[in-house]
Amino acid sequence: MNVFRLTGDLSHLAAIIILLLKIWKSRSCAGISGKSQILFAIVFTTRYLDLLTSFISLYNTCMKVIYIGCAYATVYLIYAKFRATYDGNHDSFRVEFLVVPVGGLSVLINHDFSPLEILWTFSIYLESVAILPQLFMISKTGEAETITTHYLFCLGLYRALYLFNWIWRFYFEGFFDMIAIVAGVVQTVLYCDFFYLYVTKGWFSRPYRL
């Protein structure tokens, strides 16, 4: 464990909690892409199946359980409890254009042609594009609530910190996973436009406008 991975995980956890609390407290999921949240639930489910097969550490197991729990709780709040506030018209990204190519790629390019490894690879590739429906929705509505921008900032920051974690691990441990690294770079690049606006526009005060 190194400082980049720890802060990355905490940033990811913060993002997940921020979103869940925002929906729960405001009793509304306006401006939130339910499709992205479904994709994240799929990402965690397909990546953390090893919860059933291997124990790495208490930290590892706890975080995985929390991620999966919060992901499904968020999907439940969006599509069941606060369904009336779900903005389906603006959440119109065709996720099949993501899932199908990602599924195909994970069968073609992976480290090992075993079910668990292919599912892990699928989850890595899917996570790199899972935020697109949310970014697409914001570009359609032209704005986002301030709390949603903080959620996106933490979410984007987590994988950027993981990039530093992989540099650290390559240098100190000789560990690197090309699939995770390439997908992580793609994932972080997708946030660049948003990061630029988040930092320059300083719109902590007013809604995020494209």
Binding site: D50, I56, H111, W120, Y162, N165, G174, F176
Partner: peptide, 10 residues
């Protein structure tokens, strides 16, 4: 570089 595959990352 050599690749160590241990899934200890989240």
């Amino acid at each position: 570089g050599h690749l160590i595959k241990h899934k200890d990352e989240l």
